[in-house]
Write a protein that binds this DNA or RNA. Sequence first.
DNA 1: TCTGCTTACACGTTTGAATCGG
DNA 2: ACCGATTCAAACGTGTAAGCAG
Length: 465
Amino acid sequence: MQSIRDLKPNFSGPPPSSMAPGPDAYLQGNIRMTLEDPELWKTFHGIGTEMIITKPGRRMFPHCKVNLSGLIPCAKYILLVDMVPEDGFRYKWNKEKWEVAGKAEPQPPCRTYLHPDSPAPGSHWMKQSVSFLKLKLTNNTLDQHGHIILHSMHRYHPRFHIVQADDLFSVRWSVFQTFTFPETSFTAVTAYQNTKITKLKIDHNPFAKGFRDEGTNKKRRATKNPACLEKRSRMSDMNRDSEEDSPPDFCRSSYEGYDGEEGDLPKRKEGDDVKEERYSPWAADREHSARTESPAGADPRDMYNAEQLVPAPASYQPYRFHEYGKSPSPSSSIGSSNSGSGRSSFESRVPDVATVPDHDSSKPRTHEVGPSACGPQHLPAPQDYSGVLNVTMTQAGKPGVIGHHIYSPYGAEQPLGQWSGPGPAQYPPPHHLAADYTTQAVHHGYHHGNMAEWSQYPLFSYSCW
DNA sequence: TCTGCTTACACGTTTGAATCGG
DNA sequence: ACCGATTCAAACGTGTAAGCAG
């Protein structure tokens, strides 16, 4: 048996072979997603990216930014991001490199970040690069601001989901396409360990410019300027108020997704590594990743999230499963069959989805233009669903390795009124929508807790513990 | 003692309201 | 009245370092 020490990976070196440049933009079906600024990401990845996660929530840097193509211009899509553990280990920074420090801690409530523009037509997503600038990370498991909760000293990577759905309510019946970019993996930290990363971030991050000068990094505690303190306290009061009484920063920004100046998208060469998956994000039994950067031995990722790297399915139709909400389907019967038994187990229950109405209907949004000017969309014939349904229906609890995934209807334990009557107090800040993955609640001790308050319902239920 | 986390801090950037001029 | 440019202060985001906790 290998000792933990024997398993230690070294993230300070170049990317492992599995991270070697592959197809940068993965084309499957028609949808293509490319990572913006891959060179920057690779630079960070080569050193061993660290992301600060602190209690209030911090942004990622580099930011997650992607370009999309191949979407149906008229069809509406929802974009989501979640973080999945790289492996089942906790790390420590020792002698200029990361090494395994032990087994990973139980996973915190898993959340999914919903892009604030969702849902939007494919043309909208393809128009410009899509950035997840406002995605924030935190290590506070009780976080109520919708930030994605991570453990420090653990490794994660973001996963991007594209769902064709007219609205958040129909996400359940929609097919997911999931993309991951290996170079976006990072170690969550509360304080930077690798000085190279610190330097790199400061060099690339405009907000850190103030720390470039040697002289500005000296003791700051000494300065107790009363005026400043007063100002600060005023500001923090305001911030606190705004956080408590209203949605956080997403209300401030008029939008987040698009950078106006970035009209010409960077050319993509077919050389980088990106993985695209079409499968159930919550599939409990997925194929092992071929990634080799994790410590050897049994793929520890299985413990958290056996991410599947799916070969391109032969064919794919962007099915829409709106109709299933109206006419019961086999999959819907799964959900309803759970009624009365409380929250069903991961094996048999269907995923809950966090759906939140737009909080600010007064704010004009390009995708809220009523009936699509593109005309009616041609939906596939119902019989086309069968294959997908079979997938969902296969082994209970083991959605298995699939090419598509269909959301099943609401779990029986989910109060339907939650979705049909969007009372303002019921919903979380929409732009920061995050869904707690509480599928494993019964096993892990996570419970909905404040979920009623924040409406952070499970969206994907990959293995959490 | 060591390691990791929290928090206060200063400062540059971003944002949006207010103002001005045509 | 409208529109665009400019100004300015508030708000945000950042890494650092001190202090704390286990």
